[in-house]
Write a protein that binds this DNA or RNA. Structure first.
Lengths: 237, 237
DNA sequence: GACCGGCGTTAAGACGGCGTCAAGATCGGC
DNA sequence: GCCGATCTTGACGCCGTCTTAACGCCGGTC
């Protein structure tokens, strides 16, 4: 879950933020002054920081600089004052955004989404590693025992769908529609041909696959914890 | 110099922005409606976009989506209306920041600095060296075996995109859109011609490229650890 | 024990992509 | 206005990929 740290000394605002953020499935921690806020930053390692400039013990820009000294976490600044110079100072100190009170909660949440969207260019794990196969979804690259494996476009698309749904069973219909298009759904032939290609390129023993498993009558499954092909009798799933 | 594109239909604001931005050493281009704004985006390739939501011909979020379809340049939205729903829609459509009129020029400039600061995550080596090729992204120079290589503008742009995504597979569509513009996407011809140019200038054996690899049916990849072209041996298909 | 359907495997032909070359169009400098 | 460099566009041969069909094997079913 996404973690948010709120540093603010005004109880009503703190309470409103905590309720609204929690309602949107954020994990919220809070601090009431700059010193404890910096300590909380180091301790909790939040994914984003919401910081009120009007703290009792420190100047807001000092808090920003303290954070920026070691972290590049997104910082959204809140402020009750409309002073433009304070805004500029905070932004130039390293803040990512600045919201003036009173603000709408919807707007703050939207700016939060922007900050998080930018901070995470990798929405999902781009690299999947099994015993001796490594699949890099971002680079569109497959390594087997450290060596590059050349895949054709169709082979790659098929592998990508399976890896994105790793450990899960993918039906033939779903595979056909995601790789060949929505009008396909019955051409089980294609799957058999291309699964054979993939197994020949990736499996040590193509006829006894460890990673690219067949689920008879239903579909296929890419499994990471590829145990040896169990001899008849030792199956336990 | 940093290039800024301003899309706004109100002449006074356009004028004020042009003067202030030019005074801070930005290179400013302008457009007065959404359609010509999108065209200017493709033509001028600015480093940041300032967009007014109240355009005469298109909805602001449509402009944002049109840009986001092929570019990730920072977008700062201006708006005369205080409507929170419009803010949220713009931010979720892909905008990076939102400033409500009337705004202070100092604040806008500070938010501009934030957007640009974030957009240039190039503190890491702008110089990439492989076996005998050195690419200096900052100086826009290419050395091969220590000697300067003259590239035409298009050749350089193509090489730059590939090197920025080194080791990663870049699709033909992405290359075409980043080099030629968003309206291109199917002209695979251009890529073949210019890849041939680059290979002739950079590769020892242009027909057996070590660095500028083709991924048939998908795109191209610049690879640093350029191993020799694998001699035909383990191929079976 | 015979039948049948699903799966793996292989092979062959059609098709499209890629590299290459060259000529025309366009732009900018002198 | 001329000339060179650069970009665009078309054509062509080759090779890899996709499609499709056929066959054997194994399981389950009757």
């Amino acid at each position: 879950m996404t973690r948010v740290l709120v540093i603010d000394d005004e109880q009503p605002i703190l309470r409103a933020l905590r309720i609204n953020l929690a309602a949107h499935k954020y994990e919220v921690s809070t601090a009431a002054d700059g010193a404890s806020g910096l300590a909380a930053m180091a301790r909790d390692r939040p994914d984003v920081l919401i910081l009120d400039l009007g703290l009792p013990d420190m100047d807001g820009t000092e808090v920003i600089k303290g954070v920026r000294g070691w972290s590049s976490v997104p910082i959204i600044v809140l402020s009750a004052w409309g002073q433009e110079s304070a805004k500029i100072a905070a932004l130039d100190a390293g803040a990512d955004d600045y919201v003036t009170k009173p603000f709408g909660m919807g707007e703050l949440l939207a700016r939060l989404r922007v900050a998080l969207r930018r901070a995470s260019p990798a929405p999902d794990e781009p690299v999947i590693t099994t015993g001796d196969i490594t699949v890099d979804l971002a680079a569109k690259r497959v390594l087997r025992a450290g060596a590059d494996v050349r895949l054709t476009p169709t082979e790659w698309q098929l592998l990508e769908v399976l890896v994105r749904n790793r450990e899960r069973l993918v039906t033939q219909r779903q595979l056909l529609q995601e790789v060949w298009g929505p009008e396909y759904g019955t051409e089980g032939n294609y799957l058999r041909v291309y699964m054979a290609h993939l197994r020949r390129k990736l499996e040590a023993d193509p006829s006894g696959p460890r990673y690219l498993r067949t689920e008879p009558g239903i579909g296929y499954r890419f499994t990471c914890a590829g145990s040896e092909v169990s001899p008849p009798g030792g199956r336990s799933s």
